[in-house]
Structures are given as C-alpha cells and as structure tokens.
C-alpha cells in the first residue's frame, strides 16, 4: 500500500502555555473523507491549522505524500496541494464572487485551465454563477460557505481541509453542502473534515477520529463509530 496522503505523527501544538494538541497521530488515505469530531476546544480546528501551515507545531511531524511539511509556509503548502477553507467562511466580502474564486487560483501556473475549473465550480454550485458579479458580503450564509469551498477547490487541491462547513447554516442548506462534499470527494479529492455536527460528519466520512481536549479518544471506520454505544451517548445525544 502506498504512503498516506497526509499523516500526523505525535503532533503537539501549544498556544503559549496552553497545550492544545497532546500528541495526535493519524493518517488520511488518498481519495477518502476523514472526519474529525469532538466538542468545543477539543483541538479540531487546531489540527487543521497545523496541517495547512498556519500554526507552528511544537513537537512531532506532519507529512504530506511522505514529505515532512511542518514549518513550511502556508502559501507553499497551497501550491503543493493542501487547500484550507477556514472556519467562519473567511470570504473576501468586498470582492465579487468571481474575484473570490479567481483568488483561489492565485498560485496556479496553468492559467489556461482556470476558466474550465471555474465552470466546474459553477456546476457544483449553480447559485454562485447566478451571483457572479455580486459582492461576496451580500451572499447568504450558505452561499458564502459554498463560495469558501469553491474558492478552495480553485487551487486544484489534492486534499481539501474543511473547517465547520455547517456552522450557522439552516439544516436544509447543510444537507446540500454535505452532498457537494461527497461529490467533490467522488471526483478524487481527499477531504479532511472538521465538524461539530458529529452525526452528519460520520454519515459522509469513511473514517473518523474523535478528539477530546487535544487527544484522540476513539477512531475507526465511521460506520463502526456510529454503532458504538459510547460514541452515540457522548456525541450523538442518544
């Protein structure tokens, strides 16, 4: 079997005196969806930020396609194929939808392939095409989340890091977004998904990790976790 696409080996992260990640190890296989679930402050977003180079790690190593990548600048990682759609959407509110999306392809050298990719994003999110000239700040929450995912896809990532795509959205919209995440994954993009809505995340993911105060407390194929009595009690509200 080939090396995993992304691998964490005993990763530790400190925010000043706070020990946010206490030795996390896991790997994401090519073409799969891995979900990180857990309560507030468990270290889910911190894990994503460590993967995309936005946070320095204090111990351990992050590997991408077998290469050590911790300490590499975030913009380098984007050109290597790691794309991060940050929590709270982080869209450029005063720019148009189109400008937002083209900024997603900021580092790409194959300029001629950008237009077809833009079309592909519009196929995934027809709503964005309708609003192409609109300022991103005037979009609804769901549309903004679509834009954030679309922008991340414009970098043609090998792995897409999604931070709380369901945050603050209506259930109907959330369902749509998750359908699209599955679609994106089916076209070959590996997904690392952070989600508080554990039930939903476990339904779409192949594999899942449960984090608690900076440690992995359970992991396995998501179907197994869905069936586990303990997990259902602690995270799914049964």
């Amino acid at each position: 079997m080939s090396a995993p696409l992304l691998e964490f080996r005993d990763v530790n992260v400190h925010y000043g005196a706070i020990h946010a990640l206490k030795g996390i190890s896991f790997s994401v296989e090519q073409g799969k969806i891995l979900a990180l679930v857990g309560a507030n402050g468990a270290g889910k977003s911190t894990t994503l930020r460590a993967a995309s180079g936005m946070l320095p790690i204090s111990k351990g190593g992050v590997y991408f396609e077998g290469r050590k990548i911790d300490g590499t600048r975030a913009d380098r990682l984007v050109s290597m194929g790691i794309s991060h759609a940050p929590e709270g959407r982080g869209i450029f509110a005063n720019m148009t939808v189109e400008e937002n999306l083209t900024l997603g392809a900021f580092l790409r050298k194959d300029k001629s392939a950008i237009a077809p990719d833009l079309e592909r994003v519009f196929e995934l999110f027809p709503r964005l095409k309708e609003r192409i000239w609109q300022n991103a700040g005037t979009l609804s929450g769901g549309e903004q989340q679509m834009l954030a995912i679309g922008r991340a896809l414009m970098a043609r990532p090998k792995i897409l890091l999604l931070d709380e795509p369901s945050l603050g959205l209506a259930p109907q919209i959330i369902e749509k977004i998750f359908e699209i995440i599955v679609k994106v994954n089916e076209t070959g993009t590996t997904v690392l998904l952070v989600e508080q809505n554990a039930l939903l995340a476990l339904e779409v993911a192949h594999y899942a990790l449960v984090l608690e105060t900076g440690k992995v407390v359970a992991q396995g194929p998501s179907r197994k976790l869905l069936e586990s009595e303990e997990i259902r009690k602690a995270y799914l509200g049964d």
Binding site: S52, M54, A74, D75, V78, S79, S83, H84, A85, P86, G90, I91, F92, A93, N94, M95, L103, G104, F106, L107, A148, R151, A152, A155
Partner: peptide, 11 residues
C-alpha cells in the same frame, strides 16, 4: 479583506 483566508488561498 481577510488575512487568514488570504493565507489559505496561497497569498
């Protein structure tokens, strides 16, 4: 507009 998002898009 958003420094974190800019960094995430590779700026």
């Amino acid at each position: 507009e958003d420094e974190i998002a800019a960094e995430a898009t590779g700026v």
